[in-house]
Amino acid sequence: MTVYLPIAELSVNIFIILGMGAAVGFLSGMFGVGGGFLITPLLIFYNIPPVVAVATGANQVVASSISGAIAHFRRGTIDIKLGTVLLCGGLVGATVGVWLFSLLRSAGQLDLVISLLYVLLLGSVGTLMLWESIGAMRKAAKNQAPQLRRPGQHNWIHGLPLKMRFKKSKIYLSVIPVATLGFSIGVLTSVMGVGGGFIMVPAMIYLLRIPTNVVVGTSLFQIVFVSAYTVIVQASTNYTVDIVLAFVLMIAGVIGAQYGVRVGQRLRGEQLRALLALLVLAVGIRLAIELVIPPKNIYSVVSAGAGF
Protein backbone atom coordinates (compact mmCIF):
# COMPACT_ATOMS: atom_id res chain seq x y z
CA MET A 1 0.00 0.00 0.00
CA THR A 2 1.46 3.30 -0.98
CA VAL A 3 0.88 6.69 0.49
CA TYR A 4 1.70 9.95 -1.21
CA LEU A 5 3.79 12.35 0.81
CA PRO A 6 2.61 15.81 -0.21
CA ILE A 7 5.69 17.76 0.86
CA ALA A 8 8.35 15.20 -0.08
CA GLU A 9 6.38 14.85 -3.34
CA LEU A 10 6.78 11.13 -3.70
CA SER A 11 4.87 7.94 -3.09
CA VAL A 12 6.20 5.57 -0.46
CA ASN A 13 5.24 2.20 0.89
CA ILE A 14 3.36 2.92 4.11
CA PHE A 15 4.54 -0.34 5.71
CA ILE A 16 8.18 0.57 5.26
CA ILE A 17 7.59 3.93 6.95
CA LEU A 18 5.58 2.26 9.73
CA GLY A 19 8.33 -0.33 10.17
CA MET A 20 10.97 2.38 10.28
CA GLY A 21 9.00 4.34 12.87
CA ALA A 22 8.33 1.27 14.99
CA ALA A 23 11.95 0.10 14.86
CA VAL A 24 13.32 3.50 15.79
CA GLY A 25 10.61 3.89 18.44
CA PHE A 26 11.56 0.51 19.88
CA LEU A 27 15.23 1.46 19.99
CA SER A 28 14.52 4.88 21.43
CA GLY A 29 12.41 3.30 24.17
CA MET A 30 15.08 0.71 24.83
CA PHE A 31 17.98 3.15 25.02
CA GLY A 32 16.08 6.14 26.32
CA VAL A 33 16.98 8.37 23.38
CA GLY A 34 14.75 10.50 21.17
CA GLY A 35 15.59 8.64 17.99
CA GLY A 36 15.92 11.69 15.76
CA PHE A 37 19.51 10.77 14.92
CA LEU A 38 18.28 7.41 13.58
CA ILE A 39 15.07 8.45 11.87
CA THR A 40 16.58 11.22 9.75
CA PRO A 41 19.36 9.08 8.18
CA LEU A 42 16.89 6.20 7.65
CA LEU A 43 14.55 8.54 5.78
CA ILE A 44 17.47 9.76 3.68
CA PHE A 45 18.39 6.13 2.87
CA TYR A 46 14.78 5.68 1.74
CA ASN A 47 15.22 8.54 -0.76
CA ILE A 48 13.22 11.12 1.16
CA PRO A 49 14.88 14.46 0.29
CA PRO A 50 17.20 15.40 3.18
CA VAL A 51 15.49 18.78 3.58
CA VAL A 52 12.19 17.03 4.31
CA ALA A 53 13.80 14.29 6.39
CA VAL A 54 15.42 16.82 8.73
CA ALA A 55 12.36 18.99 9.32
CA THR A 56 10.06 15.99 9.66
CA GLY A 57 12.54 14.27 11.96
CA ALA A 58 12.28 17.23 14.33
CA ASN A 59 8.51 16.77 14.37
CA GLN A 60 8.90 13.09 15.25
CA VAL A 61 11.25 14.10 18.08
CA VAL A 62 8.48 16.23 19.64
CA ALA A 63 6.18 13.21 19.79
CA SER A 64 8.80 10.83 21.13
CA SER A 65 10.11 13.23 23.79
CA ILE A 66 6.87 14.68 25.16
CA SER A 67 5.73 11.65 27.14
CA GLY A 68 9.15 11.32 28.76
CA ALA A 69 9.21 15.02 29.57
CA ILE A 70 5.77 14.84 31.19
CA ALA A 71 6.77 11.80 33.24
CA HIS A 72 9.87 13.61 34.51
CA PHE A 73 7.84 16.73 35.27
CA ARG A 74 5.40 14.70 37.40
CA ARG A 75 8.28 13.07 39.23
CA GLY A 76 9.83 16.47 39.81
CA THR A 77 13.09 15.59 38.08
CA ILE A 78 13.24 18.64 35.85
CA ASP A 79 15.27 21.67 36.86
CA ILE A 80 12.99 24.25 35.27
CA LYS A 81 15.42 27.13 35.85
CA LEU A 82 18.33 25.27 34.32
CA GLY A 83 16.07 24.03 31.55
CA THR A 84 14.95 27.57 30.78
CA VAL A 85 18.53 28.80 30.43
CA LEU A 86 19.25 25.85 28.12
CA LEU A 87 16.05 26.60 26.24
CA CYS A 88 16.93 30.28 25.72
CA GLY A 89 20.21 29.21 24.13
CA GLY A 90 18.37 26.51 22.21
CA LEU A 91 15.82 28.86 20.68
CA VAL A 92 18.52 31.22 19.47
CA GLY A 93 20.49 28.22 18.16
CA ALA A 94 17.47 26.84 16.32
CA THR A 95 16.82 30.23 14.71
CA VAL A 96 20.42 30.45 13.54
CA GLY A 97 20.21 26.83 12.42
CA VAL A 98 17.15 27.37 10.24
CA TRP A 99 18.79 30.41 8.71
CA LEU A 100 21.90 28.33 8.01
CA PHE A 101 19.68 25.60 6.59
CA SER A 102 18.10 27.98 4.07
CA LEU A 103 21.48 29.43 3.17
CA LEU A 104 23.06 26.02 2.53
CA ARG A 105 20.01 24.91 0.61
CA SER A 106 20.18 27.81 -1.81
CA ALA A 107 23.91 27.18 -2.23
CA GLY A 108 23.19 23.54 -3.10
CA GLN A 109 25.35 22.24 -0.25
CA LEU A 110 22.68 21.27 2.28
CA ASP A 111 22.58 17.54 1.57
CA LEU A 112 26.34 17.35 1.80
CA VAL A 113 26.52 19.28 5.07
CA ILE A 114 23.74 17.17 6.63
CA SER A 115 25.54 13.95 5.68
CA LEU A 116 28.93 15.25 6.81
CA LEU A 117 27.56 16.39 10.17
CA TYR A 118 25.92 13.03 10.70
CA VAL A 119 29.07 11.12 9.82
CA LEU A 120 31.11 13.33 12.13
CA LEU A 121 28.69 13.25 15.02
CA LEU A 122 27.61 9.63 14.82
CA GLY A 123 31.20 8.54 14.25
CA SER A 124 32.62 10.35 17.26
CA VAL A 125 29.72 9.74 19.66
CA GLY A 126 29.54 6.07 18.62
CA THR A 127 33.27 5.55 19.10
CA LEU A 128 33.31 7.25 22.49
CA MET A 129 30.29 5.32 23.69
CA LEU A 130 31.67 1.99 22.49
CA TRP A 131 35.01 2.69 24.16
CA GLU A 132 33.37 3.64 27.43
CA SER A 133 30.94 0.70 27.50
CA ILE A 134 33.62 -1.87 26.61
CA GLY A 135 35.71 -0.51 29.47
CA ALA A 136 32.73 -0.79 31.82
CA MET A 137 32.00 -4.33 30.66
CA ARG A 138 35.61 -5.37 31.25
CA LYS A 139 35.50 -3.97 34.75
CA ALA A 140 32.19 -5.69 35.42
CA ALA A 141 33.72 -8.97 34.25
CA LYS A 142 36.60 -8.53 36.70
CA ASN A 143 34.06 -7.77 39.43
CA GLN A 144 35.43 -4.30 39.94
CA ALA A 145 33.11 -1.55 41.01
CA PRO A 146 32.60 0.86 38.07
CA GLN A 147 34.60 3.98 38.67
CA LEU A 148 32.26 6.91 38.49
CA ARG A 149 33.45 10.37 37.73
CA ARG A 150 33.26 12.47 40.81
CA PRO A 151 30.78 15.27 40.30
CA GLY A 152 32.43 17.38 42.98
CA GLN A 153 35.54 18.02 40.91
CA HIS A 154 35.76 21.38 39.22
CA ASN A 155 37.09 22.26 35.79
CA TRP A 156 37.69 25.51 33.92
CA ILE A 157 33.97 25.78 33.10
CA HIS A 158 33.23 26.43 36.75
CA GLY A 159 35.50 29.45 36.74
CA LEU A 160 33.35 31.38 34.24
CA PRO A 161 31.50 34.54 35.30
CA LEU A 162 27.71 35.23 35.38
CA LYS A 163 27.06 32.53 37.91
CA MET A 164 23.58 31.51 38.88
CA ARG A 165 22.24 29.25 41.57
CA PHE A 166 20.17 26.30 40.34
CA LYS A 167 18.38 25.09 43.48
CA LYS A 168 16.99 21.87 42.13
CA SER A 169 20.33 20.71 40.76
CA LYS A 170 22.09 22.06 43.87
CA ILE A 171 24.76 23.70 41.76
CA TYR A 172 26.15 27.18 41.36
CA LEU A 173 27.09 27.54 37.73
CA SER A 174 27.79 30.19 35.11
CA VAL A 175 24.95 30.62 32.57
CA ILE A 176 27.50 30.92 29.74
CA PRO A 177 28.31 27.21 29.30
CA VAL A 178 24.65 26.25 29.85
CA ALA A 179 23.32 28.66 27.22
CA THR A 180 26.18 27.73 24.86
CA LEU A 181 25.31 24.06 25.17
CA GLY A 182 21.64 24.88 24.54
CA PHE A 183 22.62 26.98 21.52
CA SER A 184 24.73 24.21 19.95
CA ILE A 185 21.98 21.66 20.47
CA GLY A 186 19.48 24.11 18.95
CA VAL A 187 21.62 24.45 15.81
CA LEU A 188 21.89 20.67 15.55
CA THR A 189 18.13 20.28 15.99
CA SER A 190 17.33 22.52 13.06
CA VAL A 191 20.15 21.45 10.74
CA MET A 192 20.09 17.72 11.50
CA GLY A 193 16.59 17.03 12.81
CA VAL A 194 17.84 15.52 16.05
CA GLY A 195 16.74 16.21 19.59
CA GLY A 196 20.36 16.16 20.64
CA GLY A 197 19.85 14.24 23.88
CA PHE A 198 22.68 11.88 23.05
CA ILE A 199 25.09 14.81 23.15
CA MET A 200 23.38 16.96 25.75
CA VAL A 201 23.12 14.30 28.45
CA PRO A 202 26.85 13.38 28.48
CA ALA A 203 27.81 17.06 28.21
CA MET A 204 25.64 17.95 31.19
CA ILE A 205 27.03 15.09 33.27
CA TYR A 206 30.71 15.27 32.37
CA LEU A 207 31.26 18.93 31.50
CA LEU A 208 28.75 20.81 33.62
CA ARG A 209 28.72 18.28 36.46
CA ILE A 210 24.96 18.44 36.84
CA PRO A 211 23.54 15.70 39.09
CA THR A 212 22.41 12.69 37.04
CA ASN A 213 18.89 12.57 38.50
CA VAL A 214 17.81 15.86 36.85
CA VAL A 215 19.86 15.55 33.66
CA VAL A 216 17.51 13.42 31.54
CA GLY A 217 14.34 15.27 32.55
CA THR A 218 15.92 18.69 32.02
CA SER A 219 17.34 17.74 28.63
CA LEU A 220 13.92 16.38 27.56
CA PHE A 221 12.34 19.66 28.68
CA GLN A 222 14.73 21.55 26.41
CA ILE A 223 14.32 19.08 23.53
CA VAL A 224 10.51 19.25 23.46
CA PHE A 225 10.42 23.03 23.22
CA VAL A 226 13.36 23.47 20.88
CA SER A 227 12.18 20.80 18.44
CA ALA A 228 8.60 22.14 18.52
CA TYR A 229 9.96 25.62 17.79
CA THR A 230 12.16 24.19 15.00
CA VAL A 231 9.17 22.49 13.37
CA ILE A 232 7.22 25.76 13.34
CA VAL A 233 10.13 27.79 11.98
CA GLN A 234 11.04 25.14 9.36
CA ALA A 235 7.39 24.98 8.29
CA SER A 236 7.16 28.73 7.89
CA THR A 237 10.50 29.39 6.19
CA ASN A 238 11.39 26.26 4.23
CA TYR A 239 7.97 24.52 3.88
CA THR A 240 9.65 21.18 4.45
CA VAL A 241 7.64 19.58 7.26
CA ASP A 242 5.73 16.64 5.83
CA ILE A 243 2.81 16.15 8.18
CA VAL A 244 1.72 12.86 6.59
CA LEU A 245 5.18 11.34 6.89
CA ALA A 246 5.56 12.70 10.43
CA PHE A 247 2.20 11.31 11.52
CA VAL A 248 2.86 7.79 10.20
CA LEU A 249 6.30 7.82 11.85
CA MET A 250 5.11 9.07 15.22
CA ILE A 251 2.17 6.65 15.47
CA ALA A 252 4.47 3.69 14.85
CA GLY A 253 7.20 5.30 16.95
CA VAL A 254 5.24 5.82 20.17
CA ILE A 255 3.90 2.25 20.04
CA GLY A 256 7.35 0.79 19.32
CA ALA A 257 8.80 2.83 22.20
CA GLN A 258 6.46 1.18 24.74
CA TYR A 259 7.84 -2.25 23.89
CA GLY A 260 11.39 -0.96 23.69
CA VAL A 261 11.19 0.32 27.27
CA ARG A 262 10.21 -3.16 28.52
CA VAL A 263 13.12 -4.84 26.73
CA GLY A 264 15.52 -2.12 27.84
CA GLN A 265 14.70 -2.72 31.49
CA ARG A 266 15.94 -6.32 31.20
CA LEU A 267 19.32 -5.44 29.68
CA ARG A 268 22.30 -4.19 31.61
CA GLY A 269 23.38 -0.59 31.25
CA GLU A 270 26.80 -1.13 29.69
CA GLN A 271 25.50 -3.79 27.30
CA LEU A 272 22.77 -1.44 26.26
CA ARG A 273 25.27 1.35 25.66
CA ALA A 274 27.56 -0.94 23.64
CA LEU A 275 24.64 -1.98 21.43
CA LEU A 276 23.57 1.61 20.92
CA ALA A 277 27.15 2.56 20.11
CA LEU A 278 27.35 -0.15 17.42
CA LEU A 279 24.06 1.01 15.94
CA VAL A 280 25.18 4.63 15.89
CA LEU A 281 28.46 3.65 14.22
CA ALA A 282 26.68 1.52 11.62
CA VAL A 283 24.43 4.42 10.58
CA GLY A 284 27.44 6.73 10.46
CA ILE A 285 29.44 4.34 8.28
CA ARG A 286 26.53 3.85 5.90
CA LEU A 287 26.29 7.62 5.44
CA ALA A 288 30.05 7.90 4.97
CA ILE A 289 29.99 5.27 2.22
CA GLU A 290 27.27 7.23 0.43
CA LEU A 291 29.54 10.29 0.38
CA VAL A 292 32.49 8.43 -1.08
CA ILE A 293 31.04 6.15 -3.77
CA PRO A 294 30.51 7.76 -7.17
CA PRO A 295 26.89 8.96 -7.56
CA LYS A 296 24.66 7.46 -10.27
CA ASN A 297 24.34 10.83 -11.91
CA ILE A 298 26.78 13.60 -11.16
CA TYR A 299 24.19 16.13 -12.30
CA SER A 300 21.03 17.11 -10.49
CA VAL A 301 18.25 19.53 -11.38
CA VAL A 302 16.54 21.78 -8.88
CA SER A 303 13.49 23.77 -9.76
CA ALA A 304 13.16 27.19 -8.18
CA GLY A 305 9.64 26.45 -6.99
CA ALA A 306 10.20 23.02 -5.48
CA GLY A 307 13.68 23.72 -4.24
CA PHE A 308 14.99 20.23 -3.57
Binding site: N59, I232, A235, I243, I255
Partner: peptide, 25 residues
Protein backbone atom coordinates in the same frame (compact mmCIF):
# COMPACT_ATOMS: atom_id res chain seq x y z
CA UNK B 1 -1.88 24.68 3.65
CA UNK B 2 1.87 24.21 4.02
CA UNK B 3 2.55 26.99 1.53
CA UNK B 4 -0.33 29.38 2.18
CA UNK B 5 -0.67 29.08 5.96
CA UNK B 6 2.79 27.89 7.00
CA UNK B 7 2.57 29.11 10.59
CA UNK B 8 -0.76 27.41 11.24
CA UNK B 9 0.50 24.32 9.45
CA UNK B 10 3.59 24.23 11.67
CA UNK B 11 1.51 24.69 14.82
CA UNK B 12 -0.77 21.90 13.64
CA UNK B 13 2.19 19.58 13.06
CA UNK B 14 3.46 20.27 16.59
CA UNK B 15 -0.02 19.82 18.11
CA UNK B 16 -0.33 16.49 16.30
CA UNK B 17 2.99 15.37 17.74
CA UNK B 18 2.08 16.49 21.27
CA UNK B 19 -1.30 14.73 21.14
CA UNK B 20 0.22 11.53 19.72
CA UNK B 21 3.08 11.40 22.20
CA UNK B 22 0.97 12.31 25.21
CA UNK B 23 -1.95 10.14 24.11
CA UNK B 24 0.25 7.10 23.73
CA UNK B 25 1.74 7.51 27.20
Amino acid sequence: AAHDQPLIYGLLAVTLAVVTGWGAS
